[in-house]
């Protein structure tokens, strides 16, 4: 009790006495802001739940997600110990959902590692350098922006073969241009501010200015945007799965599960609906969290 109170006081001290304390305090204040937003916390809670479910899928699953049992096919939820019922091949939907969470999180993680990073680099370099570099980079961005996302993904998958990795690549390739645009716009406003002039006057080179002074300010708006886009990414991945171009059967990807279930949707609603609810929940959770992050990360607002 007193230890946690001491920690709280240490974090909220008016005069931090070390670099570490200042950094932790600023994180803690951000956390307090986020915590006061009930909906964002709900989103965070749902996401944490899904991640834990994905990690502990082998422990939580009641059946083998790939084991087929045609005698048990299309059982309604709750029947014969199948919590969410079974699909057309008699596989346990609950277990498949758990393993499917792994795939969704895997896709999200891969896209997050590629698209915003590429966008950030292209956008800040373009915005800071200006001149012909800016023109070239922005036209390239425009070209990528002009491709319809799903069609490009289709082309990619057609060329490289169906599979999650190729789907992710296709999604990332069409997802980065908006991030580059945001990063460039931010950079253009930051570039001419006095604190950048001041560090220039200390002899700092462009590399240092971009990575140390401009990136930290762009990252917050990118994080917000990525969180809000996450829903779209998951939906695109699910869409590719649904079209049979993403994860391949028997992989329990949620989009593919809906696709399989659509044949039975009139008679056996749960086969398509339950993975649909899972996609809905994760998308909504990301959106709610993204909205909350906006309050925390907005650099214009000091959360003191």
């Amino acid at each position: 009790m007193s230890a946690s109170q001491g920690l709280r006081e240490w974090l909220l001290a008016e005069e931090p006495t070390s670099r570490r304390q200042a950094r932790w305090a600023s994180w803690y204040k951000g956390w307090l802001t986020l915590r006061s937003n009930t909906l964002a916390m709900l989103g965070l809670f749902v996401l944490a739940f899904l991640i834990l479910a994905a990690i502990f899928a082998p422990l939580l699953a009641t059946h083998d997600p790939f084991a087929q049992d045609l005698g048990q096919r299309l059982l309604a939820p709750g029947e014969n110990g199948h919590l969410f019922g079974t699909d057309s091949l008699g596989r346990d939907i609950y277990s498949r959902l758990l393993y499917g969470a792994r795939i969704s999180i895997y896709i999200v993680a891969l896209v997050v590692m590629v698209a915003p990073v590429v966008g950030l680099i292209v956008g800040t370099v373009s915005g800071y350098a200006g001149g012909w570099i800016d023109v070239v980079l922005m036209r390239v961005t425009d070209i990528f922006l002009a491709f319809p996302r799903l069609i490009l993904a289709l082309a990619f998958v057609a060329a490289l073969g169906a599979g999650i990795e190729n789907a992710v690549l296709a999604i990332s390739l069409t997802a980065w241009p908006p991030y580059a645009r945001i990063a460039r716009a931010e950079t253009l406003t930051i570039r001419n501010s006095d604190f950048i002039h001041a560090i220039k006057l200390q002899g700092a080179g462009p590399f240092r200015i971009v990575t140390r002074h401009i990136w930290p300010l762009c990252i917050s708006s990118l994080v917000i945007r990525v969180t809000l886009d996450m829903a779209g990414i998951i939906l695109t991945a699910a869409g590719l799965g649904f079209l049979g171009l993403g994860a391949q059967p028997p992989s329990p990807e949620w989009g593919a599960m809906i696709s399989e279930g659509r044949k039975y949707i009139l008679d056996y609603w749960w086969v398509a609906t339950i993975p649909g609810i899972a996609i809905f929940a994760i998308s909504l959770a990301f959106n709610l969290l993204g909205d909350g992050m906006r309050d925390v990360l907005d650099p214009k607002e000091d959360h003191s």
Binding site: R19, A22, S193, D194, F195, H197, G203
Partner: peptide, 22 residues
């Protein structure tokens, strides 16, 4: 740069909002 330095007009714009004094 080690000989000539500048102080700007607006102290609200001349410090990086995400960096401590240190």
């Amino acid at each position: 740069y080690s000989k000539v330095q500048m102080v700007f007009q607006d102290p609200y714009a001349s410090l990086h909002p995400r960096q401590t004094v240190d």
